[in-house]
Design a protein around this nucleic acid. Structure first.
Lengths: 159, 159
DNA sequence: CCCATTTTGGTACTTTAGTATGAGACGCTC
DNA sequence: GAGCGTCTCATACTAAAGTACCAAAATGGG
């Protein structure tokens, strides 16, 4: 009977109930000497005791058999990606009305390359790079390359 | 006491237990006449009845009371922040061994300001700004301001 | 107070960036 | 083919950036 296992669990309560039961027995014994020695109402006496202790047993069982609520906490992780990969903002790019070559120069510019290095990368003379860069600044409405880089990254035109 | 509601539910069982109880009382009455009239072992008799009916009550309660095991599953959503706000990388900053003033210049530099503008912001002459900037490039191991900005942002030294 | 570091500023110079202007070559379209 | 836009490159110039070296003033700790 698996129920009994639960009965023995709360050891502190056991002593309390045992003490309570002892007191009741003592009280009943006292009542026995006072009222029941004389007459023959032993049947009623026994019945009352049986009824009382049955109810007591039920009550004890109800007290010991506690709700027993098992709370299972399941942590559900809501993952929100931080990678933040580069997605070209084509709308903004189109607004600027850059030519193909100008955009290529802008990409190199955003890498932090100098005009000479851009020329090496795209096989252009320094003059040509300067021309593209200058036109780039005009179209982008900036005054120097650092502002151009900042704006290009902010508008998601370059990584 | 909500427990009693469960007791009254199975009406068929009630008659069975009532009948059982009646039989037991009858049996006890018979035992009473046979063994216990003569002597003074009424105490033991009462104790046995009390014990028996307590156990009976417990048993009845355990039979009638449902398992009563409630499993509550609580789903706890744990969010992982995406804000990605600027957090200064103090470790990397310390590695560079920049002076206070140099770092202030770097902060303005990262905004895309020219040397002259940085001078206006920090109330410095162009010469002083150039000195700081030059020392900055040496300590950061870069060749120009665009690389310095790129590195500062990558190492989370500036927003 | 002394010393090391920082901060500030200067001069002189080189390099790079950026502007302005022009011009030749190419491809496309009307 | 004329016109247009793009791409290329050049020259000339100015502005800004960057380097090198020096030095005075301020700062802060032992």
């Amino acid at each position: 009977m698996p129920f009994l296992k639960h009965l023995w669990k709360p050891s502190k309560s056991i002593f309390f109930y045992a003490l309570l039961m002892a007191l009741l027995v003592f009280a009943l014994k006292w009542m026995q000497w006072k009222y029941l020695i004389a007459d023959h109402s032993v049947d009623i006496y026994i019945g009352l005791i049986a009824l009382f202790f049955t109810i007591l047993g039920i009550w004890v069982a109800s007290q010991l058999a506690k709700p027993k609520i098992e709370t299972v906490v399941v942590e559900k992780e809501v993952y929100i990606v931080p990678p933040e990969e580069f997605v070209l903002n084509e709308a903004e790019l189109k607004k600027l009305n850059l030519t193909t070559r100008e955009y290529e120069v802008l990409q190199q510019l955003s890498k932090g390359l100098s005009n000479a290095e851009i020329g090496e990368q795209l096989f252009l003379s320094l003059s040509t790079v300067k021309t593209h860069v200058s036109n780039l600044f005009f179209k982008m409405d900036v005054k120097n390359r650092t502002q151009a880089i900042e704006k290009a990254k902010r508008l998601k035109l370059t990584p």
